[in-house]
Structure formats: structure tokens, C-alpha cells
């Protein structure tokens, strides 16, 4: 049961905590893209060109992710092929 006091309690999150949350996500994202090698966008474009020789995919069909920790660097490639690929070829 809700008491009368609870009714008057301010339950909405403060704007400062919202600001902090937004900044933490943004800053983490910007820091990770800062540490990426500068050739990534070009690599992504050239890979896309090669794939398009064989399969008709859109501009956003490929994602390139670069991650770095103390021991290793990981380059993750994700290519999404369209469903209708089999039928069209």
C-alpha cells in the first residue's frame, strides 16, 4: 500500500543523473572510435566493393568493429547477406 508520504516523494530521476548516463555512453563510444586505426573506413568501403561484385548488398550491410585490450587487437567483420540472394542468383 502506498503511504501518503510516498505520494509526495519526487520519483523522477534527476536531470544530473540523466546527464551523467548520457555522457558515459557517449564518451565511451567516442574514446573507442578514437583508438581505431585510421584505415578502417577505407577498408570497409573496399570490402563492400568486393562483396558487391558477387552479391547486391546495401551500404550498411557490412560493419567493421575494432576492439583493443591489453593482450590483443580484434578486428570483427560482420556481413549481412540479403534473404533473397539464393533466389536471384
Amino acid at each position: 500500500m502506498m503511504s501518503l508520504l510516498d505520494y509526495f516523494k519526487i520519483t523522477k530521476t534527476s536531470s544530473a543523473s540523466l546527464a551523467k548516463e548520457r555522457l558515459q555512453i557517449l564518451v565511451a563510444h567516442e574514446r573507442s572510435s578514437r583508438s581505431q586505426p585510421s584505415y578502417l573506413p577505407q577498408l570497409q568501403q573496399e570490402l563492400l566493393d568486393v562483396i558487391r561484385k558477387y552479391v547486391n548488398v546495401g551500404q550498411d550491410a557490412i560493419s567493421v568493429n575494432f576492439e583493443q585490450d591489453e593482450n590483443q587487437e580484434t578486428l570483427e567483420l560482420n556481413i549481412v547477406l540479403p534473404d533473397y540472394h539464393a533466389k536471384n542468383s
Binding site: 544530473a16 551523467k20 564518451v27
Partner: peptide
């Protein structure tokens, strides 16, 4: 009042 980022908040981020 929760209207401004605190010193700790800013230090957590930066």
C-alpha cells in the same frame, strides 16, 4: 538538488 553534475560525476566520466 540534482540539477547539476557533481565533481564525482565529472571525475567518473573524465
Amino acid at each position: 538538488l540534482g540539477d547539476m553534475l557533481s565533481v564525482d560525476d565529472v571525475q567518473d566520466i573524465l
